[in-house]
Amino acid sequence: MTVASAIFYFFAAILIFFSIKVVTTKNLFHSVMSAFAVLLGTAGLFFLFNAEFLGIVQILIYAGAVTILVLFVVMLTTAGPKYRIVWETPLNIWIFVFVILFGGMLGMIVLSIQWPVAKPVALHGVTEALATRLFVEYLLPFEVASILLLAALIGSIVLARRD
């Protein structure tokens, strides 16, 4: 096993463990922190695959900004660190049946397909290629998307204002 694949499995283990933790933990705050770990692990994978720009954006936006926003929401809405998520709906046997069936189906598809493996390419200037795509080739869609986002931003501020 090479160093790179060892690091890959390390990050993969973190991702799987904390992804499960996000949905199974009873503590809302722990759930958010597990999501934080998942986002950092994803950034680690990006770094491993030489996509530094994507990795840093992942940290900057998801692990940094989004996690903090969610933490703020949790802190300002729930009742203290002892708050627990309670599952009130009785568990239905059909849920398990469907999950197992669907999971089995997915597993069979994944295993049966011969996945194409990309040839390793020289990864210099990934960021430049990305910038060229965004700001030269697809400039108009990019600007439209940013105007849409701005509209959504202003809309949410208008909705949230009390007066």
Binding site: F29, F36, E52, I56, I59, A63, G64, I68, T127
Partner: peptide, 22 residues
């Protein structure tokens, strides 16, 4: 991407402050 990396990593620090406070 030196500077970009630095600002990316800097955004993790406030998480620790929030977590410690909580």
């Amino acid at each position: 991407l030196g500077f970009f990396y630095i600002f990316g990593i800097l955004t993790i620090v406030p998480v620790s402050v929030l977590v410690a406070g909580w």
